[in-house]
Design a protein around this nucleic acid. Structure first.
Lengths: 352, 352
DNA sequence: ACTGCTAATGAATTCGAATGCAAATGTCAC
DNA sequence: GTGACATTTGCATTCGAATTCATTAGCAGT
């Protein structure tokens, strides 16, 4: 033991003397310089530590001098709290993805949480990513990417708090936030009905997309309520090109419609561009187009897309809040928080 | 609680029995079950560990049974290697930000690195973020956000490998990757000159933006070579609105021009939309507009922006490579790698 | 002066895996 | 059978901070 201490003394003298080559200062270095024990240093930096004001001052002075900052790894290891949150997000498809990420990042920083980001694309990545998340002992996970029920269960079984963003788990129990598709599509469809539209088409997302299917069903449901059936549906992959392709497919099929409901903005933009540039149509005079998300480009003067703006700030805030609650009390039951989007009255649909 | 499904194969039963408090299995647990020492378990999972095949098999079986995965925190603490890379990125301004992030994420995952993401917006955040980065002992940093020279020096002094993305440090030494503004702007300006344009305007970025100023100077320089001086310059903030506003300002100033060089795509799109929708102009017939980045929306049929496509894949690959090299050998000298962008022949500029 | 109490402090232990070193085992040659 | 040698293995220590527990100092009350 004494030998160990001497060893440390020697090294840190060199460290202090050269000031350059050294490993970073530890709480022991600070303790020695301040003439206190390592425990005192730890307590000085802990919010609940009981320390005499004079001692605190000495320690803070020494810490400043050595440029000491507590090592997050060591803190995490002993306290079983990493302050890390894994954020899983599927790649670029969504147009509001940068906004969501930025909001999450700031809210998490404000809550003293750090973001471990994983961008998923191919299905094969997921299990590898989940393994990494597990190995890093994150305090929680926010997932805005497709997750199978088994994968959700993995988190539940391991008691890792999980909040799903804009999706839900089919059978497994998981907290989630979302933007209400039913009221959103009702606003959009009612808007189109009021404008006199009676012949609709829908551009939906992939079958395995939760929000896509929800929005498709909601739109179809509302149309059915209004006595409109046999609405043609084409599926895209949420991408710009797929919107244009879906539109072309509708035309090729000889479908009759003067209003198109797209389940996201990017496909709606693809539709508008294809209609205008490829087929020489005018929007909204020839066809009304509506989207969903209210993302940046949707508001551009070139599109002025009629859409549902997701309350991203409130949704991300809710996601982080729900996660923090579940980190502090892992026994909280699953919960789903649904927010209503706001109708953006653009010019991509004729006025009623 | 503890309502696990013991139906499958008894594995979860044992798992539940041994770790009923939810405590995850450690190398000691595995060692005990396999009848070996903790060291053996560690060696079994280390790439260089020397283990008898039979022992390895026993350990792997036990590990599987307990769902054991090495704790990244403990590994990092002892080995002084966290496999964490901090990525600092400034908020949503850049249109190619999602692409950059996705590419970085995948390349890092392939290199067994995890991404700690910080999204910076206000200048005030930065020091707080740098502190967090330091406390987490990241192996390196990739920065695509504004960093003062002092802040760069902080990383250099602490010997944290740093690679700057699309920016350089003024005086401090730091590795960096970028897209060459000079050749890029030369391509664009030459294209406009060949089309017969002689009256130019430039929409630049904020004065404190490195790439913005570089691109502004490069465009002005090339124009000067062609004997064109007195080019009006208006500054924007890289945002869509600011492009539109800058265009309106140019018109209000009575500037004479038929070609506009914007230092990024988003402002160019703002210009096009303002010209078309607000001022009833036709693009490119009335005015040619070029951008820089080659981001997604720039290729949309509604814009078909003539622009310089940054080789994002190669740039991110280079950034990660340079960082890994410097993690493995911290004494490597600073280095700057510049890539040439590719001219995208859009339809926002008249053909030559 | 002595008891009783609180606040401040330090020694020792802990988190979970990696590793230097020594011991044990095994292999082969002579 | 012995010695030389390579391969496995385990013990003990290490990384850096938090925390428990026991101790001490400080101070009021009687």
């Amino acid at each position: 033991m004494a030998e160990r201490k001497d060893d440390k003394d020697g090294r840190s003298l060199i460290n202090a003397a050269s000031g350059r080559q050294g490993r970073r200062a530890t709480s022991y270095d600070v303790a020695r310089l301040a003439g206190v024990s390592q425990s005192a240093v730890s307590r000085c930096f802990a919010p609940s530590g009981s320390i005499a004001p004079a001692t605190r001052e000495r320690i803070e002075k020494a810490a400043l001098e050595l440029g000491y900052r507590p090592n997050a790894l060591a803190q995490a290891l002993i306290s079983r709290r990493t302050n890390l949150v894994a954020v899983l997000i599927s790649s670029l498809t969504a147009l509001n993805y940068p906004e969501v990420l930025a909001e999450l990042s700031h809210r998490m920083l404000a809550r003293d949480l750090r973001m471990l980001l994983f961008s998923l694309n191919t299905e094969s990545d997921v299990d590898e990513v989940i393994d990494q998340v597990w190995r890093h002992s994150v305090d929680g996970v926010i997932c805005a990417a497709r997750l199978s029920d088994e994968q959700v269960s993995l988190f539940v079984d391991r008691e890792v708090p999980l909040v799903l963003y804009n999706r839900v788990a089919d059978r497994a129990q998981a907290a989630s936030v979302g933007c209400d598709s039913v009221t959103g599509q009702r606003l959009l469809v009612d808007r189109l009905l009021a404008a006199g539209h009676r012949r609709f088409a829908i551009i939906a997302g992939p079958e395995d997309s939760y929000v896509g299917e929800e929005r498709r069903r909601a739109a179809l449901g509302r149309l059915q309520e209004a006595g409109i059936n046999d609405v043609p549906v084409v599926r895209g992959d949420y991408g710009y090109e797929s919107g244009a392709a879906a539109f072309a497919a509708l035309l090729a099929d000889g479908a009759q419609f003067d209003a198109i409901v797209c389940v996201n903005d990017l496909m709606a933009i693809g539709v508008i561009d294809a209609a205008r540039e490829e087929f020489g149509m005018r929007i909204p005079e020839d066809i009304s187009v509506v989207g969903f998300d209210g993302s940046g480009p949707a508001t551009w003067a070139g599109y002025r897309l009629t859409s549902i703006r997701q309350p991203v700030r409130r949704m991300t805030e809710a996601a982080v809040n729900m996660l923090v609650e579940r980190i502090e009390d892992p026994d909280l039951p699953a919960e789903r928080r649904l927010f209503n989007g706001r109708l953006i009255e653009g010019r991509s649909a004729v006025l009623g």
